[in-house]
Nucleic acid binder design. Sequence first.
DNA 1: CATGGGATTGACT
DNA 2: GTCAATCCCATGC
Length: 207
Amino acid sequence: MTVRAGTRSLDDVLALGVVEAARALVGFTVVHEGVAGVIVETEAYHEREPACHAHVGATARTHILFGPPGTAYVYRSYGIHALLNVVVEPRGVGAAVLVRALDPVDGVEAMCTRRGCEDPEALCSGPGKLTQALGIGLERNGTDLRDGPIVLLPPEGAPPALVASARIGITRAADLPWRFSAAGSRYVSKPWPPGLDAPRPTRPRSV
DNA sequence: CATGGGATTGACT
DNA sequence: GTCAATCCCATGC
């Protein structure tokens, strides 16, 4: 069996360290109950740095992060949003990749219904938006991402080029360049990563 | 048991 | 640009 050059299976990616896994997961497709999108942005979190939930050790909330790689870690953010992470690194090491944005590809109509029929570019352009669009809630916490109901499929073609920048919305370890966005994608979250120009500026920049 | 803080989003000045 | 919504859970008394 030959595999296309440049493609990696989910198991290959899960064997990587968290930062490399965050890079490699851009281009994978997230499927949930007939709705799907291609990952265009991720962030890496590791127990060694204080922005990671696992930094406090294994607790009722964080023990999933210390479990086997390939598990979903879904938690409630600001009391409102569910955020989806892919647990990586071997058992005993707390680390995960936050899925921050998707390019919607299947079930766009269902996503629009859940999200209130927004512009397709705004449907999944944030970690709280994409879980709402895909119908992923806290009940998916701890589920196996190989078996579903959430499934991760490898890229069909070459993985996209990436832009690295600082992680969003954190106060600690905010300098680490562990946010990875598909270069040129219109579906990434805001603020736009440096080096990624906003599409079609409506007027020339004043000088 | 009470309290405070978010890996966010959308609405508003 | 500012700000509130809303709830799980880590922490401290």
